[in-house]
Design a protein around this nucleic acid. Sequence first.
DNA 1: TCGAAACGATAATATAGGTTATCGTATTGT
DNA 2: ACAATACGATAACCTATATTATCGTTTCGA
Lengths: 209, 209
Amino acid sequence: MRQWSDNHPKVKLLTRKRAAILDAAQEAFLQLGYEGASMEGIANAAGVSIMTLYRHAKCKETLFAAIIANVCDHSSEEKQAELDEMMRGPLKDVLVRAGVVFQEKLAGPQIMSLLRVVITEIRRFPNLAEAVYDAYFVAWSTNLDGFLAQKDEFKGVAPKTRKKLCEAFFSRLVGTDAIRVLLGMKGASAAERLERARVAAEELLAEVG
Amino acid sequence: MRQWSDNHPKVKLLTRKRAAILDAAQEAFLQLGYEGASMEGIANAAGVSIMTLYRHAKCKETLFAAIIANVCDHSSEEKQAELDEMMRGPLKDVLVRAGVVFQEKLAGPQIMSLLRVVITEIRRFPNLAEAVYDAYFVAWSTNLDGFLAQKDEFKGVAPKTRKKLCEAFFSRLVGTDAIRVLLGMKGASAAERLERARVAAEELLAEVG
DNA sequence: TCGAAACGATAATATAGGTTATCGTATTGT
DNA sequence: ACAATACGATAACCTATATTATCGTTTCGA
């Protein structure tokens, strides 16, 4: 049987054991980190023996890399579906809504766990960092850029400028709140996030009259 | 001889061995993280034997906690000195200058290493996170607040409002740049940081006419 | 100078966890 | 049903590293 390191980009779930291992490993790595998660613990959580775990995954490192890559891919895919529903209504409402959701997701356990574990392991897995950044921050910016490109208000804006505006929009929404949540402290309130999104939206729209 | 866990707040450097251990431990922990740094490695780097290391530090955990606390204290102290020189000239210039320095220090190796290691170890050392946040972000905000309190432009501003404005000022300067640097990616350019500081300064000053 | 305290070298202890080997059983596809 | 493959249980191996014990030597203050 082929191992995950052989078919790198897409991890196929051939059997239910494979899926169980994938789930358990993802849970363990995101929850406990690379060093904190043990192969034995992952095997137990998946309901398989250690040997079965090793028959599917070459070693801990490749398993970890496959899991993180998989989480990034999955994150990008499901974002696309959400965005279609989010991008309806008046332009400013869309921006504010997107800004709030962006902040909530960023402070949520999924992305935060991902950021923490990848930040911790930049030495061991230098290439994963950019993948995670792309999967969240670049993805949001790119999606908003594609949306704005179809709006009349942005007909006269150069693509490069439009891209910069999108990046600045989301960059403005990070703030010390992201640091606070990364440090395990309580994040901003819903009201604060809404207000921040409003200001960022107004700032963006001010650029196009 | 007393150990560091006995006199918690201030770690006195009684002997040159103590200082060497403190330096080596700080270097190792910030560079390699808590798990990545070994007691043997610290002892070697300090030029002492492992036994001497253990005679000064009760265990690895207390050593780590003492080091991080010490770094936070030292960081706050030296910030005060820099600020006195920074806070001269026209108000807007001061704000822009402070904004740029804040961003540069934040993206610098000192603070970034500190953030990374504390983010990694929030489970084991839950109380250190807030100490680090206070030592950098709260300290900057508090210092700016104290400075603005003496300015005529802020005579009519309520202290609570002024405090919020300071927090918002620095929060605006974090952005995705901080995440990028935490992930080991290249940060913003000097020009981008200057421009961001300018906008944040204008936004702050707009609140007081 | 003298005795107490600090120091160094070394070894031993203890634990944790990644990885592999073996061998017998269960599952599965044809 | 049968052969190939997957699976499980167990043990063993190996490494790294925190921590302690011992004992002889050095340093330093009174």
